[in-house]
Lab assay of single mutants.
Amino acid sequence: MSRVPSPPPPAEMSSGPVAESWCYTQIKVVKFSYMWTINNFSFCREEMGEVIKSSTFSSGANDKLKWCLRVNPKGLDEESKDYLSLYLLLVSCPKSEVRAKFKFSILNAKGEETKAMESQRAYRFVQGKDWGFKKFIRRDFLLDEANGLLPDDKLTLFCEVSVVQDSVNISGQNTMNMVKVPECRLADELGGLWENSRFTDCCLCVAGQEFQAHKAILAARSPVFSAMFEHEMEESKKNRVEINDVEPEVFKEMMCFIYTGKAPNLDKMADDLLAAADKYALERLKVMCEDALCSNLSVENAAEILILADLHSADQLKTQAVDFINYHASDVLETSGWKSMVVSHPHLVAEAYRSLASAQCPFLGPPRKRLKQS
C-alpha cells in the first residue's frame, strides 16, 4: 500500500486566492494483479454453464480479502454459449462490502496482453458476489490457432484489481511565511564533478583513453575500487588504474551511474553493462540491467540471455529466462542460440529441462510459493 502523499503547497495549487485553511483528501486504492494459466484448455468440458475456478489470491499475505477468477468455457447461458465468460469473485471478506475495479486480458504466445476488457467503474462486491463479462471473447476466435491465444493449448488470463480503501483527510492552515525547501541536487552536482573533471585525484585508463576521477567517490560506490585504493596496490601508489576489459562507451555509462545513480543509455548496452556491474560489484546497476534484459526477452535471444545471466550470477534474470524458455519451449528449441547452448553450456540445458519437467508435473513435489530491489 502506498504512503499517503503530503498535500501540495497551496501557493502551487492555483494562481488564484489562497485560503486560510485547507483539506486534502486521499482515497486510498490498493492495486494488484494475478495470472492464471489453464493447461490443455481444449479438453475443458463443453457443457453450457460449466465452471472452472482459479485458486484464491489477494494483494498480499496480510490481506484478508480473498478473490478468485471464474471461467465458463462455453458461456454462462444460452445467450453467451458462443463466448467464454469471465468473472472476478470475492471469496471471503471481513467487511460487509468492498468496491473494486478490474481489468481482464489474455496473454498471447509472446506474453503480450490482448483482448483487454475492464470495468468502467468500481463495482460493489459482497462475499460470494462476482462481476465480469458474460461475453468476454468469442470461442471461435479464441480457438483459432492463427490468433495465437492458446500457445501449446494453454489459456493464460491476466487480471488487474484495484480495491478502494478508506479515504484519509489531511488538513492544515496557511501561513504568510511559507518556506520552500529546494530539491536535493546531489546527483546532478556529483555528475558535474565527473563531467568537468574537477578536483580529480586519479586516472582511469580504458582502451587508450584516459578519464579523470575521484578516488573517494569510486571507493564509496564500488567495493572493488575501494579494495584497489585501500591496500598497497599499484593503483593506490600511482593513482592510476588500467581497465582492459570494458569498452570506453560502456565504461562511461558505468561511471555515470557511479556518480549519479542513473544510467540513461542502459537499454542500448544492458548486456555489456551487466558484465561491468558484476565485475565492479555495483549491485543496483546489475539489477537494473537484469530488468532491462528481462523486458527484451524473446524467442530468438532467450538462450543467449540465459548464458549471460549464468555467467554473471544474475539470479533474477536467470529465473526469468528459464521461465520464458519453459513457456515458449517449442519455439526456443528451434533457435540457433539454443542449439549452440546445447554444445557450449549443457548444464544450462539440463537446468531448463528440470524446470520444465517440474512445471508440467506438479505432483512430483509440493507447490512452490512464489514470493528486491534495493
Rank of each mutant, 00 (worst) to 15 (best):
M1V: 00
R3Q: 11
R3G: 02
R3I: 02
P7S: 06
P8I: 01
P9R: 13
P9A: 14
P10L: 08
P10M: 11
G16T: 05
P17A: 10
V18I: 03
A19E: 10
A19D: 03
S21G: 03
Q26S: 06
V29M: 03
N40K: 02
N40C: 11
F43T: 11
V51A: 05
S54N: 01
S54G: 02
S58D: 04
S59L: 07
G60I: 12
G60L: 02
A61T: 02
N62I: 13
L65I: 02
C68W: 02
R70I: 14
D82T: 08
L84K: 12
L84D: 14
E97G: 03
K103D: 08
K110N: 09
K110P: 02
K110Y: 14
G111P: 12
E112F: 03
S119T: 12
F125Q: 00
F125C: 00
G128R: 10
K129G: 13
W131N: 01
K135D: 03
D140P: 05
N147D: 05
G148V: 04
G148C: 06
G148P: 07
P151F: 07
D153F: 06
L155Y: 10
L157E: 00
E160P: 00
D166T: 10
V179Q: 11
P182H: 05
L186P: 04
L193F: 10
W194K: 11
N196I: 13
R198A: 15
C203T: 12
L204N: 05
G208S: 03
I217Y: 14
I217M: 14
A220H: 02
P223Q: 12
N244L: 04
V246S: 04
F257I: 02
F257H: 08
T260W: 05
N265D: 08
N265M: 07
A270G: 10
L274V: 02
Y280N: 07
R284P: 01
R284S: 04
L285F: 04
V287D: 04
L297R: 00
S298N: 04
V299S: 08
V299P: 08
I305A: 09
I307Q: 09
L308Q: 07
D310N: 07
D310G: 06
L311Y: 13
L311M: 03
L317D: 00
K318I: 08
F324A: 05
N326H: 08
H328A: 13
A329F: 12
D331R: 03
L333A: 05
S340G: 09
P346D: 01
H347G: 12
L348Y: 06
A350C: 11
A350Y: 07
A352V: 04
L356V: 04
L356D: 00
G365M: 15
G365N: 15
K372L: 08
K372A: 08
K372E: 09
Q373K: 12
